[in-house]
């Protein structure tokens, strides 16, 4: 299964999703790899959501990690969307606040900070 994951690195958007699916399918057969299956599943969801953001906001999101996505969203002022990502991927509350803190500081948005 490593080979497959390796292969998906090179391919672009469309191919990648296909590869991920194949990988997930293969892994599903064995019981030990439930964690990997879940992770690959999440990867696919993340891509989908990032593609939506890209269309909506006209900025590039694909390739960022979950935390980075949230960071970028808050930084550009899309708190609502960031919260959606948080709930979607079950990011821990504490983690979320750290990210939010960093993002707001980098934006120099002191007003928002105070409200926190």
């Amino acid at each position: 299964n490593l080979l497959l994951t390796e292969a998906l690195k090179q391919s672009d958007s469309q191919h990648r999703n296909d590869k991920l699916k194949v990988a997930a399918k293969l892994l599903q057969d064995s019981r030990e790899h439930t964690f990997q299956v879940k992770a690959i599943d999440e990867t696919q969801r993340l891509f989908r959501i990032q593609e939506v953001f890209e269309k909506d906001l006209g900025e590039s999101f694909v390739g960022l990690s979950v935390n980075e996505t949230i960071y970028k969203l808050i930084k550009s002022g899309n708190i609502k969307r960031s919260q959606k990502v948080q709930s979607e991927f079950k990011v821990a509350e504490k983690t979320y606040w750290w990210i939010r803190l960093r993002a707001l500081i980098s934006r120099r948005d002191w007003r928002e900070l105070e409200e926190m």
Binding site: E42, T43, N67, T95
Partner: peptide, 12 residues
Amino acid sequence: QVLQGYGYQHLL
């Protein structure tokens, strides 16, 4: 946590 924080490629 790591996968979410740094990207899913780190499964590898």
